[in-house]
């Protein structure tokens, strides 16, 4: 596997986790491509135009995206089901259009001047984020998230602030997607609005659904397979997209809960921990 592909895989794992985190509260977000774009542009502009260091720029990009995530999430998360999905799609369309029409960041031409990234930075990030999500899955907070995902009315009735929990995870997911977007921008040295079309948002969701939504490892498996597979079947040429699509359909027909369907044992009652 080339370094290039390895880096994309790592970035995609982070993106998959950004959707996974939001999905923990039952919200399927098609806005993460937009948050990724925000992160790419904010960190790109800060480093290329303002000379701010790499990591501070990344942190500021993540923070900005979290703020925008919470601001858009507050009205969006009042809707449910299919409407919420449409609202998150709309966020993706809006951000892409906004970037296309902003001269300062090059509009449709895109912008360059980023600093590059490295294997250590990308996979260091994957390990740190993975460790945090793993800790979350073993903490009491995981049960609160489970309750919100399972039934928001019941969760509210037993004393959980459902709106707050949903919003917090939406903001965290938006920040993580932005961080991954920052890595992407630096790795590419150049970004343009058409790097962040709706297809990107759809693919990130697909990593999670295909890998399995019930545990954090499903996102990893989904991201790795869907990143590496298109390269691996490059030899079939023109039909690549079609075969790829067919594989996804077959997989979802036979394994609806994804490749790794189990619910993390660690996330359960904590029986092992306190027995």
């Amino acid at each position: 596997m080339s370094l290039d592909l390895a880096l994309f895989t790592g970035i995609n794992i982070l993106l998959a986790w950004s959707v996974y985190l939001i999905l923990l509260t039952g919200t399927l977000s098609f806005a993460n491509g937009a948050f990724m774009a925000l992160g790419a542009y904010v960190s790109g502009v800060l480093t290329a135009k303002f000379g701010i260091g790499y990591m501070p720029a990344m942190a500021m990009a993540a923070a900005a995206s979290a703020v925008i995530g919470v601001l858009t999430g507050y009205p969006a998360l009042r809707t449910r089901g299919i409407y919420l999905i449409l609202v998150t799609l709309a966020i993706t369309f809006f951000v892409q259009t906004a970037i296309e029409n902003t001269k300062f960041v090059g509009g449709v031409q895109g912008m360059g001047g980023m600093m590059g990234t490295s294997f250590e930075i990308v996979y260091g990030s994957v390990i740190v984020v993975g460790a945090l999500i793993w800790l979350l899955s073993r903490s009491p907070l995981q049960r609160v998230l489970d309750a919100v995902r399972e039934d928001e009315h019941v969760a509210g009735a037993i004393g959980i602030n459902v709106v707050y929990v949903r919003l917090a995870l939406f903001g965290i997911g938006a920040a993580l997607a932005a961080y991954a977007g920052g890595l992407y921008a630096h790795h590419m040295f150049f970004v343009a609005p058409d790097h962040f079309t709706i297809i990107v948002s759809v693919f990130i969701v697909l990593y999670v659904i295909m890998g399995g939504v019930n545990n954090m490892w499903g996102s990893v498996v989904g991201a790795v397979i869907l990143t590496v597979l298109p390269e691996a079947i490059r030899f079939i040429g023109e039909w690549r997209q079609g075969v790829f699509g067919l594989l996804i359909v077959i997989l979802l027909l036979f394994r609806r809960d994804g490749i790794l369907p189990f619910r993390s044992v660690t996330a359960r009652s904590g029986r092992k921990a306190d027995a």
């Binding site: 049960r143 609160v144 489970d146 399972e150 039934d151 019941v154 619910r263 009652s269 904590g270």
Partner: peptide, 18 residues
């Protein structure tokens, strides 16, 4: 309004934690 995909003990644990 029990949480069907959670264990009995987890249902009680959430109520206690909150």
């Amino acid at each position: 309004g029990t949480l069907g995909r959670l264990e009995v003990r987890e249902n009680l644990r959430i109520a206690y934690d909150v």
